[in-house]
Design a protein around this nucleic acid. Sequence first.
DNA 1: CCAGACGTTGTT
DNA 2: GTCTGG
DNA 3: CCAGACGTTGTT
DNA 4: GTCTGG
Length: 244
Amino acid sequence: MCYKTALDKKAEEITKQTGRSFHIPEEFASYKHNDAFTKPNLYIIPQDAPAKIYPAVWGLVPDFINTADSSLTPSEYVNRYKTFNARGEEFFEKRSYKSSAEGQRCLILADGFYEPHHYKGKSQPFFCYLENRALFAFAGLYTKLDHELYTTTIVTVEANKTFELVHNNKKRMPLVLDDSFQEDWISDLNTNQVKEIVTSGFTNSSFQYHPVTNEIYKNRTMQGDKTQERVDAFDPQFNQGGLF
DNA sequence: CCAGACGTTGTT
DNA sequence: GTCTGG
DNA sequence: CCAGACGTTGTT
DNA sequence: GTCTGG
């Protein structure tokens, strides 16, 4: 993935911790399980309006698609190209991401995400979160279409030691920014400075994780506590004495 | 040069 | 709009 | 980018 | 080897 995320916090708490209020307070609803294929909103702090938190459709639509002569509508574009994640190593070379990487970066607020763990030909989702379910920020890119309609994508990088155990197939992970890099990410930077954060900006806080129900694979809009509750792991390495 | 693409990783 | 593929 | 071309003119 | 065509 990262194609599933969580932001299970009250608006007041998010405002208190980020120092930002919601641009459309009545629109925000917290969620425990948010699947990219349902094209939900994520909540972002964009570089061009960093004083507030805005809803942004998950699935980045480049500016050049939002024009009269484009052969694709924004919706068709996302369905076809699945721009839910942008590879940090390559986004400056990708037509869909280049201009966003250069000047339309954002923080994407979350307090959890899901990664698939493969064992004996099966996949089981693992819920990943910080100690005390702390709020964090993914590095993101965005575009702004008409009328403050934002679209966004989560930056991914090669998995670290922790996440290559969890996401043992593709060995990727979302770029969770260390607190010390959050404001930098949404400030004016040159290409090398952006690449430096992609390379070394991953959080120093340690992630926790545990297996959760496979029902979230069948039901993409599933909500409720069950989406995050620990279940038995298919892979016995994750069942020994509740180490995880 | 021009036509066509423009993306990443899921999950059965 | 800009890059890639043929 | 790669595959394929890569040339000129008479003459019965 | 280098240019052209697609």
